[in-house]
């Protein structure tokens, strides 16, 4: 006797394929007033985590989601149409490209960060200052020229006339910091905020670079799925409470 109710493999397969297509079609983000998607530069990780906590406490029922990455990586996502509400960049140039295509209006500077020389705790190579970056016998690192901490560091070196004999251009400040923490590098130029966040790296100020500050702009995205939420979040970052958190993490006020 045959059991006619058995699903034959072929129709089962068809069902599966239809299901995949349907699920894929429903995947796009729907307008949701309780969700704010914030794309923030990697160096803001700790500060924005605290801001997220405070903002959610002040606005019950609202869920802030942080999308952390390199500034230009985040910029590419926005240009390709990612449903982002707020963009906090570590680089005004990057922000400007978003403004230029009309995807962000009136970015506001909300924080600044100074660069420092980072050395492993105890400073085993006895780095004294920026001049040591010309010493080819030391193992020295910078961020890559294509990221803000790298271009800024090179500006400083150029300004003081030091031709740096570096051994690596790390793709982002975190990986530079790791190599300093492990003592693989004798010195590198990183943000003071990163030094504050790290237990294994000590900072040496660069008095020559007092005017060179990395600036952090923030803006609501023009076609944000949640425009109200975006506005509220930007306002919170600029508020007294928000600025307190920012400076507590080693940033300077704008």
């Amino acid at each position: 006797m045959r059991n006619d109710r058995t699903i034959r493999p072929k129709s089962w397969l068809t069902f599966l394929m239809v299901a995949v297509v349907v699920i894929a079609a429903c995947g796009g983000r729907q307008a949701d007033r309780s969700l704010i998607l914030v794309s923030a530069a990697a160096s803001l990780t700790d500060a924005f985590a605290e801001i997220e906590e405070e903002f959610e406490a002040a606005n019950p029922g609202v869920d802030v989601q942080l999308n952390i990455g390199g500034s230009s990586q985040l910029q590419h996502q926005i240009l390709e149409g990612a449903p982002v509400d707020v963009f906090a960049s570590a680089n005004p140039t990057v922000m400007q490209t978003v403004v230029d295509v009309g995807l962000a209006l009136d970015p506001i500077l909300f924080a600044g960060s100074r660069l420092q020389i980072g050395v492993p705790n105890g400073n085993p190579a006895r780095i004294g200052g920026i001049g040591d970056f010309a010493n080819g016998d030391l193992l020295l690192g910078l961020c890559a020229e294509t990221v803000p901490c790298g271009s800024l560091a090179r500006e400083i070196l150029a300004a003081v006339g030091v031709e740096a004999a570096i051994d690596t251009s790390e793709p982002d400040v975190r990986s530079l910091l790791t190599k300093l923490e492990e003592g693989e590098l004798d010195a590198g130029i990183v943000y003071s905020t990163d030094i504050i966040a790290s237990r294994d790296v000590t900072g040496i100020a660069i008095p020559e670079a007092i005017d060179l500050i990395a600036e952090y702009p923030i803006a609501a995205i023009s076609d944000a799925p949640n425009p109200t939420g975006a506005r509220d979040f930007v306002a919170f970052v600029l508020s007294e409470k928000g600025q307190q958190i920012i400076t507590a993490h080693g940033f300077t006020a704008p």
Binding site: T168, E170, T178
Partner: peptide
């Protein structure tokens, strides 16, 4: 990139060069 770092002409291979270039020069 984690172990050998990234320096043009010394340790920067094609994938590293792509990654760095992606930041600015697509």
């Amino acid at each position: 990139i984690t172990f050998a770092g990234n320096l043009q002409g010394r340790t920067q291979t094609l994938p590293l060069a792509v990654f760095v270039a992606l930041e600015q020069d697509r």
